[in-house]
Nucleic acid binder design. Sequence first.
DNA 1: GGTAGCAATGTAAAGCTTTACATTCACGAG
DNA 2: CTCGTGAATGTAAAGCTTTACATTGCTACC
Lengths: 345, 345
Amino acid sequence: MGGRTRRSPVGVVDLARDLGVSTATVSRALNNSASVRPELAERIRAYAESRGYVPNRLARGLSASTTRAFVGFVIPYVDTPAYSAVAAECARLLSRDGTHMILTITGNDPERELQQLRELVASRIAGLIISPSTGILAESRQILSGLPVVELHRACGIRAPGVFSDDEQVMTDGVLHLAGLGHTDIAYLGTPRELSNGATRWRGICRGMERAGLDPGRMPVRLLEPTRENARIGAEELLATPGRPSALLVSGGALSVGAAEAVHGSGRRIPDDLSLVVYGDPAWFVLSDPPLTTIQVSYSGLARKAAELLSRVLDADPDLSQGPHLVAPELRLAGSTGPPGTARP
Amino acid sequence: MGGRTRRSPVGVVDLARDLGVSTATVSRALNNSASVRPELAERIRAYAESRGYVPNRLARGLSASTTRAFVGFVIPYVDTPAYSAVAAECARLLSRDGTHMILTITGNDPERELQQLRELVASRIAGLIISPSTGILAESRQILSGLPVVELHRACGIRAPGVFSDDEQVMTDGVLHLAGLGHTDIAYLGTPRELSNGATRWRGICRGMERAGLDPGRMPVRLLEPTRENARIGAEELLATPGRPSALLVSGGALSVGAAEAVHGSGRRIPDDLSLVVYGDPAWFVLSDPPLTTIQVSYSGLARKAAELLSRVLDADPDLSQGPHLVAPELRLAGSTGPPGTARP
DNA sequence: GGTAGCAATGTAAAGCTTTACATTCACGAG
DNA sequence: CTCGTGAATGTAAAGCTTTACATTGCTACC
């Protein structure tokens, strides 16, 4: 037998018994089903309210075999606003539909990701928003292809709509901005090309270089998993490159922080010794002097789009395009970029 | 009837049928119950594995009336690492026990908080970690008192263990540090005293002032909800106070960012014109020149403690103390504090 | 007036697992 | 040989809701 402890919560059977009607009628009344006499329905609703009735989500989900009670939010990291701010806003938007968001952090570990996906399926989630890990397993992909899924930030080649920042163009703009100031030795610190957003940004970079008449092949580049520590090391290496780059472009989550740290530690003055463009969150940059030239994307915009897409996927909306849905980021010029300094060896 | 769509997932009945045993035996074998012949148990487990069986969490929860399948994580904001980092780490730790964490953002709105608590109860969560909203409703408190609860960051007077940063002492230290440098006009920007952590910090501040022979009553103070915008305005007002404070102490989440912004905008040089101590996240401070004197607490330490306490509450551990469990923060001296400048009017 | 048809309500099954209680079987003791 | 004991397994109920289908009772029309 199930729970022995017969807890206080009232159920439909209690309401039905007390009111002398059947559970079916109670259920229909509470779900605003048409076929119940309005006066009776009202009485039932009032009584349910007075008894503080809350329907058991588990039972409802079990009965319906799938409800919107739960959706998953599966992301590799959460220590950067690109994830934490989007997660928060999604949770807020989804809760308005009475949907709970289950937050799951994979740590970018494909094994953990797979296990967590399995568990989410076991919990009969209605669907999920996922930012896949770098080396996502085929098995995970298969699970995903059987669920209503929305991709976020990163694509992994499944048939699903996705929400992404439109990075290609803005990265090109960033490069052209630097080139326009006279920089020829531009370094790039970004995320790996295995990540779809890493690939997109890299395309944007290359296009910018080519348009500026520079050779992307000779560009000092580090493509790293976006952790702060990686970024610090990568940026230090880039700054020490023989060509002594006069400009540094950084994209991707926690990379910005680590890079800023490294630049700071290098003793180079900005923008005299080094022009710096970072992709990321405005909150960090208030402390910087001079203010940073940044690439910014609206996290709430991404979240709204993600929540909307998920809702449409759950509704099996036939008009929904499976491809990427792009949110445009913005290049904000500020004091951290300028003409190449004269103080170079 | 329930779901018509008879989806693929195999259940215990399928396994039982195929193996010619009863569902009870299957269930027992899978749950490593003793009373099943080892050889048979092994066969059942192997078959379950081969069929990719995953138990339905909803049904299990329904049957057990309460499991560890779901716990809630109810917080007012998530845009600061004090919440986002702790949330992420808790999610990670809990998932190791196969527990899903449902993230819920109240926006510090008591009404929303109540509604979300109701929904969580309806989902038969096993327990929750909560950082209560400022004006938490009596009804919410009542719901909480019937659940395994752990408080985080903020207390709300319910009988439950809580995890808090031990702020009183460190705030005293901060004030004494400034006073020791010769500051007598110290301003404070913090969170409201209605918040338990706001109250704690304020006590620490007062104690520090008194020990330094200064009058807390004459201290310029702004106690505000921790949003960046509030902080910017509050800091500007403090800096414009007739006494022209020579030192500013800022505590609390997003307040640090907004305050830094305001200080920056004020044109005051640090630490010559103004000594600055901020409470918060190291990630922001890498960009600052000079590096900031900060008060830092280990988010992963808080998360570990919170997850551990929740686990113990769920186990109804009788040795568990209901009071606060403190994690000690650290005052890190750096370049943003120094003797009061001479350049004051 | 009889019946078709509709509206309102009831009955019961399904969704999936766990587990108390019942049953079976084998073996040892009397 | 019988019966008790205990281990292994089966049966069925409980957990709570939703909903297909059955039933009831009425209106309205021919």
